[in-house]
Amino acid sequence: MAAGGDHGSPDSYRSPLASRYASPEMCFVFSDRYKFRTWRQLWLWLAEAEQTLGLPITDEQIQEMKSNLENIDFKMAAEEEKRLRHDVMAHVHTFGHCCPKAAGIIHLGATSCYVGDNTDLIILRNALDLLLPKLARVISRLADFAKERASLPTLGFTHFQPAQLTTVGKRCCLWIQDLCMDLQNLKRVRDDLRFRGVKGTTGTQASFLQLFEGDDHKVEQLDKMVTEKAGFKRAFIITGQTYTRKVDIEVLSVLASLGASVHKICTDIRLLANLKEMEEPFEKQQIGSSAMPYKRNPMRSERCCSLARHLMTLVMDPLQTASVQWFERTLDDSANRRICLAEAFLTADTILNTLQNISEGLVVYPKVIERRIRQELPFMATENIIMAMVKAGGSRQDCHEKIRVLSQQAASVVKQEGGDNDLIERIQVDAYFSPIHSQLDHLLDPSSFTGRASQQVQRFLEEEVYPLLKPYESVMKVKAELCL
């Protein structure tokens, strides 16, 4: 049975990233139509530049190519590739079939990587351009969430054990800070992308030097003109047959890092959902379990974690691919890159769409948070109580021993009897502590235990987050809708 299948058929496997999760716009960027249309555009740009620099290419040939950029006979191309065992030459023939007058000058002087690699770089750039505003929107939604809850005390956790208090907004800023680093890295790697350009079979530009009869300047002009037509500021000066596969490492490393950030955020949300302090959106008709109707599973956060793990592992592909590119190139890269580049971007696209949807509907339960604080705060307040007693004339050592005994009794009630923490009640009825009984409410005010959390939130948002989001103001209103 021949390899390949009808990918629109229910009898043929289709990647869930495309069929179930990723956005239509990201799927289109990695589609065959987008790819092969870009090949034709690159052939047109090459012909236009070659004509401008004096090669015998007519206006009629150029116009014929322009008129057929979208006229792609995919069936013919597939048949040609089956016959020739070469995808680029299959599309040269297919393009030439609908451009008979231009057929002889299509791909003039070029090698397969002229269309293959340059198209990949265009796709990487455009895919990054799709991700950047999506990530900015996630940051914006979380920034709104953090600002609104900047002063809401909550129990902090280290080692997932109760620690000092923080605020809900401050905790959210930990998430935002990681995503801001990801946004900066995505922008950097996007701006650092260079075009492969017009380089020939081993990167020496020998074929173009021959076409222009040894004119170095025209060869350099050709490279520059096509690079500018493709919208790049610069091209690699040095290439082998391909652009260095280190570029793929750079791009997928940034995406993998984004995956790590999203995994951490969504894990926190899942843990908070278990504590009943916070939940992701839950639709009115949504079913959490087929057997347990009360369940409210954090399905979206779980999906993000599941896909983020996949995204983090994909960076190993370009690392290994770059390491086995012998001399000017081997074909070890080809099949692998067809999979890992598309999957990385479709996965990143999915987790950003999902995280935006989550961040637009996060639900906080202040009463649950308050109750958990009441359970733990008495123990945390013991040092403040000791200091207040010393100020009232008591002995630190005597007070410490009193607190120690009462704390152990209260802990026994919590752990052995399943009761509430009654340390404060014990202190309130103990005559030894009568000098500070009137101060206990103040000493137990949760806001006095959150330090500068709310001020940190305000400063972080104003100095770091809002300036970073400013270039994306025009796209901030787009909502994230999930079908599944």
Rank of each mutant, 00 (worst) to 15 (best):
L121E: 08
V168E: 04
V251P: 03
Q205G: 10
C180Q: 07
G361L: 13
A411T: 11
R309F: 07
A392Q: 10
P298I: 03
L362G: 05
G394H: 06
Q356W: 09
I358S: 11
K66R: 08
K233A: 11
C113W: 01
E60D: 08
D216V: 10
H7M: 15
S395H: 08
A256K: 00
R234F: 07
N421R: 04
E60M: 11
R337H: 04
L362C: 08
I265W: 13
V247M: 14
C113L: 04
R234A: 12
F36A: 14
G169L: 01
T347R: 04
L346Q: 11
E376C: 04
G197V: 01
K199A: 13
L211P: 14
L482H: 10
G116T: 15
L183V: 13
Y21P: 04
L314M: 13
E148K: 09
L46F: 08
L132E: 11
I265A: 13
M89E: 00
H310T: 08
S359C: 08
A78H: 07
S359D: 12
A110H: 00
D398P: 05
K233E: 09
E462L: 13
H86T: 01
S151Y: 10
I265D: 01
L341K: 14
D120W: 06
Y114H: 03
V478I: 09
V115F: 00
L355F: 12
W175Y: 07
T202R: 01
E481G: 15
T52Q: 13
P293L: 01
K170N: 03
I385R: 01
Q205M: 13
K415I: 06
R372I: 05
K276E: 05
C113G: 15
C173T: 09
V414C: 05
S407Y: 02
R459Y: 09
V251T: 12
L346W: 07
L271N: 03
I269Y: 04
D87E: 14
R137S: 15
Q241A: 00
V254E: 08
V478T: 14
Q41T: 10
L272V: 10
I237C: 09
G259D: 00
H91D: 03
I339M: 10
A381K: 06
E81L: 02
V465K: 02
L255E: 01
L311M: 13
D317M: 12
L135V: 12
D178I: 01
D223A: 06
S12Y: 09
R404D: 00
V138I: 13
V390A: 09
E302T: 04
I62H: 05
P318R: 01
A90Q: 02
F195G: 07
L307D: 04
M26N: 02
E283C: 12
Q397I: 08
I122G: 02
Y466P: 06
M292T: 02
P293H: 03
K66L: 09
P16Q: 15
V219D: 00
H7P: 12
Q455C: 12
D441S: 07
K35I: 10
A480S: 15
D32I: 13
P133Q: 13
N68M: 09
L355C: 11
D332F: 03
D268W: 03
N421A: 13
S261A: 09
S9W: 14
K199V: 04
T204I: 03
E79Q: 12
H263S: 09
Q416W: 13
G54V: 00
A77E: 07
L69P: 08
V251Q: 07
V368F: 03
L484G: 15
K415V: 09
A431V: 11
K264F: 04
S67E: 13
Q397M: 09
K264I: 02
V405S: 12
N274M: 11
D216R: 07
D216G: 15
F145Q: 06
Y432K: 06
A388W: 06
P10V: 15
M476C: 15
A410T: 04
R33Q: 08
K276Y: 08
D191M: 09
L346P: 05
M380K: 05
N297V: 01
A308W: 03
R85Q: 05
A308V: 04
Q456D: 03
E328K: 02
F449T: 02
K199Y: 01
K246S: 03
V315K: 03
H263R: 03
D144W: 12
A22I: 11
L179Y: 01
M89D: 00
R37M: 14
S306G: 07
S448D: 12
H7W: 09
S253T: 12
V405G: 12
A49R: 01
G419F: 06
T227F: 10
Y21Q: 01
E328C: 06
V262W: 03
L355P: 00
G4E: 15
L84R: 11
G240K: 02
K402E: 05
P366I: 04
T382K: 03
G200F: 04
A260G: 11
C266F: 10
E481R: 14
V219C: 06
A335F: 06
E277L: 02
L128N: 15
I238E: 04
I237R: 09
A2F: 15
E228S: 07
D117Y: 00
E250F: 10
F95S: 05
A3D: 15
M312S: 03
M89I: 04
E417P: 02
L469H: 02
E250G: 13
G419H: 11
L484R: 15
N357R: 04
A90R: 00
P153K: 03
Q41L: 10
R452W: 05
R426H: 10
F327M: 11
M89K: 01
D215Q: 14
A150R: 11
D129R: 07
G156K: 00
Q210A: 08
R125D: 05
K187Q: 12
